[in-house]
Amino acid sequence: MKILVFVKQVPDTDDVQLDPKTGNLRRDGVKSMMNPMDANAIEAALQLKEKHGGSVVVVTMGLPMATEVQKKALGMGCDEAFLLSDRPFGGADTLATSYTLAKAAEKIGDFDLLLFGRLATDGDTAQTGPAVAAQLGIPQISLASSIEVRDGWVYCDRDLGDRVQRVRAKLPAVVTVNGGINKPRYATPINIMRAQKKPRTTWTAADLGCDMTKIGTPGSPSSTKKVFEPEKRNTDTQYLTGSPDEMAKALADLLEAEHLL
């Protein structure tokens, strides 16, 4: 079985600063990491490989520095890594991204299963996985909290909040996984070092044979028109003062007065 896992590099903080002049994200000094749910997707893929054999291929679109994420993926146990990196890919919304990822999947070929994290922590869209499924015309299972493969079908529980739906889709299919599906293994430094020998390939738009009107900014129907700070609400906050013990007493008094204790 050949499993492709799509992995994104995201900022390692919620505390991102904007340049007050340009309104752009300040990237200098911001550390990046593998999107947490993508690590769950890799773990799910590795467990399926352990059970059924085959290979796990990790695909990342991003800047050249995204190789760090690839090294981690290979260190966890993935077999091969592809980086889609080219200036014309820049500025892609989820439509352009899904087109580019689908082109890469087609070029890699022979895939049985495409795995994604349910969402990425930087954009929160949860759109890329289902959109890639649509690009390829294959079925999808979103919000998976379990995954199994039997007789050419993938079986998942979908976490819908108040209920769980058990579904199956015929391979090849896209599955997007929740953070709770497993606990990702740790890529030890020694495994990351050993993984240096595993094949890593970088592809450009030309390598993928992309229609240039469908990638990057030209291929992105949506754009940001303006950014602004959230309106401050004028809640009168009553601040507690003094030592922690004094604060605790004052807080208990306030809660008692509101009949909340």
């Binding site: 439509l95 759109q127 289902p130 999808q140």
Partner: peptide, 28 residues
């Protein structure tokens, strides 16, 4: 869960833009 499963596929099918999980809408 259903809307977020379907809408991204519609984005591709109609070759248009889709904004995720908007908290407000309007005309500027």
């Amino acid at each position: 869960p259903l809307g977020r499963d379907l809408a991204p596929r519609m984005m591709v099918a109609l070759d248009t833009g889709l904004t995720a999980d908007a908290i407000d809408l309007g005309f500027d």
